[in-house]
Amino acid sequence: MSETYYDPKDLKNFKKITDWSEPLGTRFFEYYSKVFEEGALSAREKSLIALAVSHVVKCPYCIDAYTKDGLQRGITEEEMMEAVHAGAAIESGATLVHAVQMMNKHKKLSH
């Protein structure tokens, strides 16, 4: 069996990060759960944002967690995929906008 750096079972041990730094870990998890409560945005909307960001930061644990979270909330496949595209569009836009820098530098160095 091949080994990989990522083991899906590690997600269940996430809370153990408090073992090595209890105050910071505890505060992080309190903050995390507060962030995803209903607020000006619904918990459903936040779940879709989290799914999009999970893809942008390429976190396999987060992708598993927020796909499952979306399913439990009844979020449709179309909504999930559109959220990922929104994240992907920002990510690719962030790359492409640097082309302006390339063009500026090119213009400055060439004639």
Binding site: A43, R44, K68, L71, Q72, R73, G74
Partner: peptide, 20 residues
């Protein structure tokens, strides 16, 4: 009656009802 369409638990009944 809603039941999940796969290997996961149903979410909040109140929230799903509002969406439905």
């Amino acid at each position: 009656v809603y039941n999940p369409s796969g290997a996961f638990l149903p979410g909040s009944e109140k929230e799903l009802e509002a969406d439905f």
